[in-house]
Design a protein around this nucleic acid. Structure first.
Lengths: 113, 113
DNA sequence: TTGCATATGTCGAACTACTAGGTGTAATAT
DNA sequence: ATATTACACCTAGTAGTTCGACATATGCAA
């Protein structure tokens, strides 16, 4: 997320959910996570490395992700992340939350008077 | 927004937009803004005073809100805020942003594989 | 051999929201 | 009469997140 880009001002707090969601699609390494998020979001979200890696360590510390060094298809070493059971529950909770929140925001934005 | 409440984890960055939106409905003082947000959001958002007043000063410093001391209906002194022209533009920009962001988040959350 | 894409990481700065405290007035309950 | 609650404003310090900038190292293509 590029701070020069006003489009990312709202992302605070959603990064963890997005990362958990992408990891939930299957084991994946950090660098690929940011590419995947960028791709799916049609270039709207560009996760900076200074945000990504701290986030991954945070999620691992909380027991939501599990890391393992493996080789990529191109023969490089990379840290592959998988979702733990706790991580899956956390993701579900965050998604429910997001939906409530975005509904409530929509309510306020639609208020006319 | 109560930090103990996981429901508010996503709110970072949206407070300013919500405040601008509520002020856009008509001149209103700070205390009433938080009540209004709580009411419209059906108690989901509860803005703490330690978040509200710094936010109002921030928005005023940026020229998006204008403050004026007036009396409330009950005869008390209160600081009424109105949206400036800059503030209206800012609100429009933030709403467009929010919509893009929430669409992109929805895209990612709906990704199955 | 120079540079780019891949891949991981840290550090310090900036910003935001919260808790916890504070002031003072008016209305209501005891 | 007095205590408490609701109204209405405010700040200081703290914790957490994200960012830009930087650092490292490998593989591949021009």
């Amino acid at each position: 997320m590029n701070s020069n880009d006003p489009k990312t001002e709202f992302l605070k707090g959603t990064l963890d959910m997005l990362v958990l969601k992408v990891v939930a699609l299957g084991p994946i390494h950090g660098y690929a996570i940011s590419q995947r998020i960028q791709q799916i979001s049609r270039d709207l979200f560009q996760i900076q490395q200074g945000s990504l890696y701290p986030a991954l360590h945070r999620l691992e510390d909380r027991g939501w992700l599990q890391a393992e060094w493996r080789n990529t298809e191109t023969g490089r070493e990379a840290k592959f992340y998988t979702l733990t059971r706790k991580g899956r529950k956390q993701l579900e909770a965050e998604v429910r939350n997001w939906e409530q929140i975005s509904d409530a925001v929509a309510l306020i934005l639609r208020t006319a008077e």
